[in-house]
């Protein structure tokens, strides 16, 4: 969970920074998308870096899900008889207790997001349009429900990171007595920064700042 999660968090940071290029205009955004496909040329064939990234990401997602499922199955085996009284969290860990449901929501979101922005299947502009046009069309004010779904899904991503980031340090044995407060703070900052950074572009399109 920790290592694959770390790979995905690093990807999210890069993805978020790339998204923010939309505020620099259509040329900068489309140019960035093109750069992702041509980086390393001519030393490397086109799309080499992008393809490697895609393979690493798919592997990370699959292994992350496999870890989560095996942990959930072990948990179910370890407690065959459930408590009659529903346990209340004693550790104030709301984020902690929505990790599994949240993960499913995030997975569904990623599927929609790929169909929307990568393959253009559910995007009004379709696959042939430039990335900038897909963004502007996808989050147009009339498609407010898509933006709302993104807001909900990103809130789940935020909660996932709120627990996941410090939890990864704990799992890898890198946390210690005095580092809990800074690690939890780091998790909160990473979660907030990523959610805010990701929401900036869709919300800007929906309220008409970016056209």
């Amino acid at each position: 969970m920790a290592i694959t999660g770390a790979v995905l968090v690093l990807f999210l940071i890069g993805h978020m920074l790339g998204n923010l290029k939309i505020f620099l205009g259509a040329d900068a955004f489309n140019g960035y998308a093109e750069w992702l496909r041509t980086v390393g040329e001519p030393a490397l064939p086109a799309r080499t870096i992008l393809t490697i990234t895609e393979i690493v990401l798919v592997a990370a997602v699959v292994l992350h899900m496999w870890s989560a499922v095996s942990l959930a199955r072990r948990a179910a085996r370890a407690r065959p008889v459930r408590y009659a009284v529903r346990r209340r969290s004693q550790a104030n860990g709301y984020a902690t207790h929505v990790m599994r449901y949240g993960g499913i929501v995030i997975l569904l979101f990623v599927v929609w997001h790929l169909l929307d922005m990568t393959f253009g299947v559910v995007n009004p502009e379709g696959y042939a349009a430039t990335p900038y046009d897909r963004m502007v069309a996808g989050f147009a004010p009339s498609r407010w429900w898509v933006t709302s779904f993104y807001v909900v899904a990103l809130a789940m991503v935020g909660l996932h990171l709120r627990h996941g980031v410090w939890s990864a340090f704990q799992t890898l044995g890198l946390a210690g007595g005095r580092s809990y407060r800074p690690l939890r703070a780091l998790a909160g900052v990473v979660a907030l920064a990523l959610v805010a950074g990701f929401l900036a572009a869709p919300l800007a399109v929906t309220i008409g700042v970016i056209k």
Binding site: M1, S70, L71, R74, A75, R77, A78, R79, S89, Q90, A91, G93, T96, H97, M99, H163, W166, S167, Q170, T171
Partner: peptide, 12 residues
């Protein structure tokens, strides 16, 4: 047959 730790902190 104990489960795996997911750092929920309920134990502490």
């Amino acid at each position: 047959g104990f489960g795996g730790c997911t750092n929920t902190g309920e134990c502490t």
